[in-house]
Simulated scan of single mutants.
Amino acid sequence: MASQIESHRASAEIVNGDAICRKKSIELLEELGLPKGLLPLEDIEEFGYNRDTGFMWMVQRKKKIEHTFKKIKQTVSYAGEVTASQC
């Protein structure tokens, strides 16, 4: 995954620190019409979004977290690095 991130860094908007990373990720989710709670990550170290390629990433301190979406009673896990790309 790191190599994927590295190849998108050049023209990406990158922020560091949990508070600003959470804010930017929620803004992006809203902009894309996705639910704000889709990425309930913890202790986010870095958020990056390359608008030119549609690639985004988030790096959290923990290697993996689990989260239960109560409304749908579904538990999911997120890796330490979460990446996504618009098709």
Rank of each mutant, 00 (worst) to 15 (best):
M58Q: 10
K64M: 15
K23N: 05
K36W: 09
E66R: 05
L39F: 14
Q74P: 00
K63H: 12
T53L: 04
L34H: 13
G54N: 14
F55W: 15
A19C: 02
G37V: 06
K24H: 14
I72T: 13
E42F: 08
Q74D: 03
I44G: 04
G17R: 10
G17Q: 07
A79N: 09
S25L: 13
L28W: 14
G48D: 11
I26Q: 07
E31G: 02
D18A: 05
F55T: 09
I26A: 08
L39T: 00
I72Q: 07
L32I: 04
M58N: 07
K64S: 10
E31L: 10
I65A: 01
K24N: 10
E45R: 08
K23R: 11
L32N: 06
L28K: 07
Y49W: 15
Y49M: 12
G17Y: 13
A19P: 03
E27H: 09
L41F: 04
M58S: 08
M56L: 14
L39I: 07
I26Y: 01
K23T: 04
K23W: 11
L29T: 02
V59N: 08
T68F: 06
G37A: 13
G17D: 15
F47M: 11
K24C: 07
F69K: 01
K62T: 04
V76E: 00
L34V: 06
K23M: 12
I65C: 01
P40R: 04
F47S: 01
E45H: 09
V76F: 00
E46K: 08
Y49A: 07
G80M: 11
R51V: 00
Y49P: 03
I65E: 00
E31H: 09
M56V: 05
K24M: 14
A19M: 09
K62H: 09
L41W: 01
T75I: 04
D52V: 14
I65W: 00
L34Y: 10
N50S: 11
L41A: 01
I72E: 04
K23V: 01
K73F: 03
K70N: 12
K70V: 08
Q74C: 03
V59H: 14
G33P: 02
R22C: 03
R61W: 06
P35W: 04
E31V: 02
L41P: 00
D18R: 06
L32Q: 10
S77R: 02
R22M: 02
G33L: 07
F69E: 01
V76D: 00
Q74L: 11
T53A: 05
K71E: 12
P40H: 13
G33K: 08
I65K: 00
E27P: 05
M56R: 10
L29G: 01
K23H: 10
A19Q: 11
R22Q: 12
T53K: 03
M58D: 01
G80N: 12
K62Q: 15
E42W: 12
K73R: 11
E66A: 05
L39Q: 02
D18H: 15
K64H: 14
E27Y: 10
K36E: 15
F55P: 08
Y78E: 01
D43E: 15
A79Y: 09
